[in-house]
Design a protein around this nucleic acid. Structure first.
Lengths: 230, 230
DNA sequence: GCAAATTAATGATTTATTCAAG
DNA sequence: CTTGAATAAATCATTAATTTGC
């Protein structure tokens, strides 16, 4: 029988690697054309669809942001602990509170990020090689297929819309002869695609324990899933 | 010159009427095929695309829900006012507090909805003629075009997916000869489509003023948008 | 070792927010 | 102010890791 065709896409290591490489290179929200390209390239390494690529970037972006947020709030907590400790110390010794932030490795980790506004907190994290640019809002149309209306950010490779019609044709190649370039298609060898400014890394972390900064450090050291109901 | 092709869809009255009719008839989240059908039918009354239909239902559903929520919370507030007034009164007169809810016109308007849980608040509002059924979760795939994977809820009218390919072709007709049935296409005459169970009306209203129920009654009697910042 | 039971990751959907045209 | 469009957040759901008892 067929391998029951897993109900969801399971990226191959190569696919994953390439996707992550692209992400690292700055791609965050590929537009329809880009998704097409990426998909067709990745299809050399296994079954894949445009929506998989779309979702992957969506999820990856969101979860990276999430990780960052968590890290930040944790740092904030530590910081505040430190601060308070140091403060106490200073109270006792009357020392100036210079540079007590050297612990942190990121320029973003500053006490100023107490209440990160939901939006418009752009370019907070000038991480090496990644240009987070809030201005270029890269309005694209995932949601509605390759019905690219007028804005075409990329060289409109691979297809053209004509008028009010939709016509989308993506040949993924047969699921059988998958790996390592079927060489039959005109398939540009994935030159990292075009880089482009991406939307900003907006931050907002909910401190699950308490809004009060210091009491935020909980004592549940176990990484247990908080959502499981026995 | 061309009429600059308005950057967004502007539904004609007929289109709007039909859409609202469909909504009233219970359609909430039409699947790809249904969207196709609806679109192609509505295109008889003016320029329209699938995404317009999609967005319209999306937005309309959300905003109806929103209206309901607002109405509900307002009723809750009134209720609590009433309750407290009555309560005071009862304290003074020692009366039993029977049926003080007759004011409200909806079975949903009961004090039990103090803290509507985010999810699973299904079938709270058996509004006449509309079947809100949480169970039928109508998992569909808007987001990714007419790339209907396997679940086909409707008679797969109008097109067929084959294998791993996408092939979507929607002829909207040239923008010039639009209205009133071009008769060239096989276009079923819109027999209200198939009705189907839709996702539940989930409720969650943020009381912008305060989480405390009673202090929630603001003095802005105007139905102004609570999100506008002057 | 291994298979059921848990837990963690992450693909896929749905809902809420936000932007901005008109 | 209304609402079409777009994006982000929250959630659901399935798969992979991992643990646990045998």
């Amino acid at each position: 029988m067929s391998p029951a065709a897993s109900s969801r896409w399971c990226p191959t290591p190569e696919q994953l690697m390439i996707l992550e490489e692209m992400y690292r290179s700055g791609i965050r929200t590929p537009n329809a054309s880009q998704i097409q390209l990426i998909t067709s390239n990745l299809s050399a390494y296994g079954k894949i669809e445009g929506k998989n690529v779309f979702y992957w970037f969506q999820n990856h972006k969101a979860r990276e942001r999430q990780k960052l947020r968590r890290k930040l709030t944790k740092q904030l907590q530590l910081q505040q602990q430190l601060y308070h400790h140091q403060y106490q110390h200073q109270l006792q010794q009357n020392l100036p509170n210079h540079h007590f932030l050297h612990y942190f490795d990121s320029p973003a980790a500053s006490p100023a990020f107490q209440h990160l506004s939901y939006y418009n907190s752009a370019s907070l994290f000038p991480q090496a090689g990644i240009h987070e640019d809030a201005a270029a809002k890269q309005v694209m149309n995932y949601t509605w297929k390759f019905d690219i209306p007028e804005r075409v950010d990329m060289d409109k490779a691979m297809m053209r819309m004509n008028g009010s019609d939709w016509l989308v044709m993506v040949d993924m190649g047969p699921p059988l002869s998958p790996p390592y370039y079927s060489t039959t298609r005109s398939r540009p060898p994935l030159k990292t695609l075009e880089l482009f400014p991406v939307t900003a890394t907006n931050l907002k972390e909910e401190c699950n324990n308490s809004p009060k900064p210091l009491s935020c450090i909980s004592n549940n050291a176990t990484p247990a899933n908080p959502l499981t109901f026995p």
